[in-house]
Simulated assay, not measured.
Amino acid sequence: MAPANQNFALRPMLPADIPLLAEIFRASVEELAVEDYSDAQIEAWVEAADDEEAFGKRLSDQLTLLATMDGAPVGFASLKGSDVIDMLYVHPAAAGQGAAKLLVDALEKLAGARGAKKLTVEASDTAHDFFRRRGYTAKSRNTVLRGDEWLANTTMEKSFGDETAEPGATLQ
């Protein structure tokens, strides 16, 4: 695994970023999900970015942050409402260097500031271990239809500030 890159920064999404974010989305799915999904599933998944206007509206309707490296966007994440991570994608060239961690750290802080007691994500099989390592627990296994293809994912959840936990106890 590559060492964490200290040149990452965060900024909000701008409308002009949408074409590049669609490309990051496509590259991320096409290159990082190949071990977990079939070619047909990947093709159906990336079609979500074919309509850039709809893709951009989805991101614009949410709180969307970009991770940049030396000023160039390399990943993005979006918070739907106050308690759902809707999208998290990092360009394969920046994968494993800390961009996803930076994005999710920020969304967790923002969710907490918005009063969320927990954060939920429908994690792809590719992202499952990333979220598990961050303290998210699996709640249900799902299948979602994309085009003519069924894709599996897992609803995962992380609770914040659980006052019922005993001091020193770890939340499972």
Rank of each mutant, 00 (worst) to 15 (best):
L59H: 04
M1C: 15
S28Y: 06
A113K: 15
R133M: 06
M13W: 02
A152L: 10
R132S: 10
V74A: 00
R114T: 02
G98Q: 00
Q6I: 13
L65G: 02
R141C: 04
K158N: 02
L151S: 01
M156V: 08
K158D: 00
M87S: 01
D36C: 06
G135P: 12
T64K: 04
L21H: 05
A111T: 04
M156F: 07
K57V: 08
A9K: 13
V29P: 02
L21R: 05
A4G: 15
L63K: 09
Q172K: 13
G81D: 05
E23C: 06
V74C: 01
R26A: 05
S28W: 05
L20T: 06
F8C: 12
L110P: 01
E31V: 13
L88K: 05
A27D: 11
A94N: 12
E30S: 14
V46I: 14
D148H: 08
D70Y: 05
A16L: 15
L151F: 03
Y136L: 01
A16F: 13
V34F: 05
V90M: 07
L14F: 08
D36Y: 05
P19N: 06
L32S: 01
Q41H: 12
T155L: 03
S140Q: 12
L14Q: 13
T126K: 03
T170D: 10
K158Q: 02
A93T: 11
Y89L: 06
K80V: 07
V84C: 04
W150T: 10
S82D: 06
T155Q: 03
E47M: 13
L103G: 11
P19E: 06
A169N: 07
A54M: 14
R26D: 03
A22G: 01
E163L: 15
T64M: 03
R134G: 00
R141T: 05
N7E: 15
Q6M: 14
V84Y: 10
D86S: 07
W45I: 02
S82K: 07
P12D: 03
N5T: 14
N142S: 01
R132M: 11
G168A: 14
G135K: 12
K101V: 14
L107Q: 11
N142T: 00
T143K: 09
G115F: 10
L65S: 02
S28D: 07
E35C: 11
S28G: 09
R132D: 08
S60N: 08
Q62G: 01
G75P: 08
E122R: 04
W150G: 05
A33R: 00
F130S: 01
M1G: 14
R26S: 04
F76A: 00
E52R: 11
A4V: 15
A100I: 07
L14V: 08
G71R: 07
